[in-house]
């Protein structure tokens, strides 16, 4: 095997190596846990960056950005041009007003949940703060911090075991995250956040945040979001079970 260089590791992280070389890097990493951990962390960064910014692709483009070629040199139609310019400028200001408004609102429940999922679900060593072996303690602790009686739904019949949970800080205060794992290693996270009356109760809603699918709902001042990098139908089955257990 030829030597594996730093550049090869980055090309491996970015998935641009040919299969043969990629296999060589995999073999190289098998004997070097520190290097393997570094590669895993870099891949988690990639997932985190997509989770943070891919939603911008789906935003409507502000009207003001749809510029056309300036007509300022055409004196005979200067008046028309200035009228056009004013129109564009007003359009832009209206669009900007909208932008500012949207910027002030807190990130949506689904988006915050998807980011938390993308950041923590790839963790190998520290996916949770408190493991499922201390489930009672975990639930008591998170319930106390969120100010409501929480429960960790039982998803074993659906093939998902509880890994544990952690406390996060969300845009509206403390957030509980429960993590579940399937036999293949696929993970789902349940994100529970107080919404302090600023969101009405909702039925199930679905949001695609980059590669992360999210089902979410609001029930009596708490928002729940189930996130996973799995197909919508499969996630819906789990989300339905979670909903039934938490909102009897």
């Amino acid at each position: 095997m030829t030597q594996v260089l730093e550049d090869d590791l980055h090309a491996f992280v970015d998935g641009v190596l040919d299969p043969a070389r990629s296999a060589e890097v995999t073999a190289y990493l098998a004997d070097r846990p520190d290097e393997a951990e570094r590669v895993r962390a870099y891949r988690a960064q990639n997932a985190g960056l997509h989770a943070l910014f891919d939603h911008v692709l789906n935003e409507p483009v502000p009207a003001g950005l749809k510029v056309t070629r300036p007509a300022r040199r055409w004196r005979p139609i200067a008046l028309a041009a200035s009228v056009l310019f004013t129109g564009v400028a007003i359009g832009w200001m209206i669009a900007r007003g909208g932008v500012t408004q949207a910027y002030r609102t807190t990130p949506s429940l689904a988006h915050s949940a998807a980011i938390a999922h993308a950041v923590y679900s790839p963790e190998v060593r520290h996916p949770v703060e408190v493991g499922a072996d201390q489930e009672d303690h975990l639930v008591r602790w998170l319930s106390k911090r969120l100010g409501t009686q929480l429960r960790a739904p039982k998803l074993v019949p659906l093939g998902y075991d509880l890994v544990g949970g952690r406390l996060l800080s969300g845009p509206r205060g403390p957030v509980a995250q429960f993590m579940y794992q399937e036999a293949t290693g696929k993970r789902l996270t349940l994100y529970v956040s107080g919404v302090q009356g600023d969101m009405p109760d909702t039925a199930f809603r679905f949001s695609q945040e980059g590669s992360v699918s999210v089902f979410y709902w609001v029930d009596r001042d708490y928002g729940y979001a189930l996130s996973g990098d799995i197909k919508r139908e499969a996630l819906l089955a789990v989300a339905t079970a979670v909903y039934r257990q938490l909102s009897p």
Partner: peptide
């Protein structure tokens, strides 16, 4: 633990 933010990245 409140400081464990999702915004680390």
């Amino acid at each position: 633990s409140d400081a464990l933010e999702v915004a680390d990245v």
